[in-house]
Amino acid sequence: MKHPRIEVKELKKSFNETVILDQINFKVHQGESLVVIGASGSGKSVLTKCLVGLLKPDNGDIFLDGHQLDTNSSDGTPVAANSISYVFQNSALFDSLTVIENISFGPRFLNKQNEKDANEIARESMIKLDIHPKFWPMHPKELSSSLRKIVAIARALAVKPKIIIFDEPSTGLDIRASHKLDYLIRDSVKNENITAITITHDMNSALHIADSIAMLHEGKLIWSGEPSELKKSNHAEVRRFIKPFLTST
């Protein structure tokens, strides 16, 4: 039997006395795109930070291709860094490096390529994502916010991950840039056959990107299913969350 690409079982995380994630269970298969929706403070970012290894869960297991991930890293870097890439909400590009250096960073230091090969991978990645060569030697502060997001996606894809996590990719972008980014995420995931987990509270983006949707509310996974089923859900919290979207469309 083929294992899911990533499977989460009974995941729990608290800060001090406050429970942020409570008994989270889900699985995502290869090439599938899961979108996690939920209001601010529902635990979405904490969930993805647990998945990528930036936070240590209090309880529960994470399986990658059927193998349990050890959440205790010996040297401070996430154990799944080779398999899971992360696109931060604010892009988190390195200010001191140029666009090409940002993108070649992963191949060079994570995948241990030499500088020439890493730069070649970065070039390929930038061409795939239509990043014009005039931007390659620029620093992140010289780029627009949508271009910074695209560079962040290129950086995440350059390490050839099995799973890529997008944290609020459309935040701070206008509708056009947001749509462009949705297409880019969808195409990147399908073309590379990567598993994607996207956090968003933008329902338009969610429906465009998702193969399946899960909703978090107060740290609990209260609903999951296909995008087409979401509007039919009778769950009170789900209806409350999607109501503004339903009235606007």
Binding site: V52, Y86, F88, F94, F105, F109
Partner: peptide, 20 residues
């Protein structure tokens, strides 16, 4: 501090590089 606030230190960790 500004690297920490803008998640660049977390990005370093995710790209397999120990910030230390």
């Amino acid at each position: 501090g500004s690297m920490k606030v803008s998640d660049q230190i977390d990005a370093l960790k995710i790209l397999g590089t120990n910030p230390f």
